[in-house]
Design a protein around this nucleic acid. Structure first.
Lengths: 212, 212
DNA sequence: GCCGGAATAGGCCGCACGACTCATTTCGCC
DNA sequence: GGCGAAATGAGTCGTGCGGCCTATTCCGGC
């Protein structure tokens, strides 16, 4: 049977989660009230899954997770947090957490996450997944914006972004410096820029030029 | 009872998923072999959840999802794909998909996703979630790179990135243009840039200036 | 108490840059 | 066949920009 360790400084929440997990057929082997206790109990009981709060006394959930991952590598950690902060998410995953849930999710979600974790599978809180996907969706939206520049102009802007001066661009493309300046002037008009700096930045924003 | 529509051009896969869903207590109302059929059947049966493959004849899963989201807004779409391509993920979410799974996941994962979708919750394939998180973890690694610039220099570089000329920066900061040039010279040395364009680009790469 | 870095400021020099106008050739497209 | 856009090139003009050197003030740390 799958054994679980609960770590949260709020007894109320521990009781609720314990009920839900036991109803779902899990064996809650122990409960911890702070991170250090959690690490000790994990070492002793070797649970399959640890359900852990991020904010706890003595040793926070992130550090506790790190320690548990060292002492009991087989244990999967399901992280709970009050606030759906993305920085915490990154830290948690870095520490070796398998799942990450916000506390405003349902008990069913927690049970589902524990089941996934027991199967060795990653899981994200639905709302966090949504916000992550939201960030993922933004760039492609304005990413494929049709460039107002001609091929030659894009080529020149990229070279300028790479640090070339007007004469260097000219040498590189085997054309006269004057032509490069003409192209640049055209670029400034099209991108509503008044100098190469603004033109390059516009290019970066529009995804026409690549940072190197 | 939760009704489900299956859309996939491989009958074998449809049968497998149907079995798993029915065992889990779902009602598989219909099956479609291509995207157009899926959209039609969705309009007729108004299922709670549509499980749809990305690659299908006639109308691909992305377009089919878009059409279904228009005709049957209450239907949640769980997207399946062979390849865990992130560009597809973005497109799928943009089309209005609620969940996104790779086909190498277990049937239990599909069932879990359908259950989540029926509850109106987003879900990500564990491996996709992991890869997303991977990308999320990277930026913070080199993000908090200690800036070699002083506060004043950062301030000036940001203004330059915002499009201000030397004299404009001076006016804005109530200092002489000469001082601004001095700061810029210092910035060029520290960032190994030879002009404002390269300095600003370095700033962008290092995350000390923000694109606006 | 003093040294050093940060912020302030001035001068000088040369060139690269950007603004404005115009010309030629070569395409694709109607 | 001819129109228009893209690419090429030129001249002129003014000034913004960057290199180099020096100086003063202020502050924090040794």
């Amino acid at each position: 049977m799958t054994t679980v360790l609960l770590a949260d400084d709020h007894q109320l929440l521990r009781q609720a989660v314990r009920r839900a997990l036991e109803d779902a057929g899990f064996d809650v082997a122990a409960e911890a009230g702070d991170g250090e206790e959690a690490a000790d109990l994990a070492a002793r009981h070797q649970p399959d899954v640890v359900v852990m709060d991020v904010t706890m006394p003595v040793l926070d959930g992130i550090r506790a997770t790190r320690r548990i991952r060292e002492l009991s590598p087989s244990a999967r950690v399901v992280m709970l947090t009050m606030h759906g902060e993305e920085s915490l998410l990154a830290d948690a995953i870095d520490a070796g957490a398998t799942a990450f849930l916000t506390k405003d999710c349902s008990l069913q979600e927690v049970v589902r996450a524990v089941r996934s974790a027991a199967d060795g599978e990653t899981m994200l809180s639905p709302d966090l997944a949504a916000s992550l996907l939201g960030q993922f969706r933004e760039p492609p939206v304005d990413g494929p914006a049709p460039s107002p520049l001609t091929r030659r102009e894009e080529e020149i802007l990229q070279l300028v972004a790479d640090g070339r001066s007007t004469t260097e661009v000219a040498r590189e493309l085997f054309i006269s410096a004057k032509t490069v300046k003409n192209h640049l002037a055209s670029i400034y008009v099209k991108l509503d820029a008044r100098d190469r700096t603004q033109a390059v930045l516009s290019g970066v924003r529009m995804g026409i030029v690549h940072l190197r």
